Simulated assay, not measured.
Amino acid sequence: MSISLALAAVWVLAATITAMLPMRLQYPPGLTLLVMAPGLICFMGYQHGVWVALIGLLAFVSMFRNPLMYFYRRARGERPEVPK
């Protein structure tokens, strides 16, 4: 297994553990994972090609759909509600 796929597997485990935390504790690790993902996806694409990067991107969007929708709505000028 290549280093990029091993790092991706660790990232997925960290994201799964983060999802199990209470909502108020998810923000710091979730934001860290959100920021790290594009670099990891690019690294996977560099080592394995564009199709692997596309699969990684689809998995990332699937796992982080709610935060990405929040940032999308904020960029459009809306004021979305944050769960408590």
Rank of each mutant, 00 (worst) to 15 (best):
V12Y: 05
P83S: 08
A9V: 11
M23Y: 15
V61G: 04
L7I: 10
M44T: 12
A14S: 13
S2K: 11
M69W: 11
L13C: 13
L21G: 03
T32I: 10
M44A: 13
I3Y: 12
R24I: 09
A6F: 02
T18N: 15
F71S: 06
I41Y: 00
E81C: 08
G30S: 05
A9F: 07
R24M: 12
P29M: 03
N66M: 06
L5P: 00
Q47M: 06
V35K: 12
A59T: 02
V10R: 12
I55A: 08
L40P: 05
K84T: 09
F64N: 00
R65P: 01
L54C: 04
R24H: 12
R74W: 02
L7N: 15
R73H: 13
Y46T: 10
F64Y: 14
V50R: 14
W11C: 02
A15T: 07
Q26D: 02
L33Q: 02
V50H: 07
L5E: 07
I17K: 05
A9Q: 14
G56T: 00
L31E: 09
W51D: 07
P80V: 11
M36Q: 09
L54H: 02
A9M: 10
F43Y: 15
Y70D: 06
A8I: 06
S62H: 15
A37D: 01
L68A: 04
Y72M: 11
L13G: 15
V82E: 15
G49N: 05
M63L: 15
R24F: 11
A15D: 03
I3A: 14
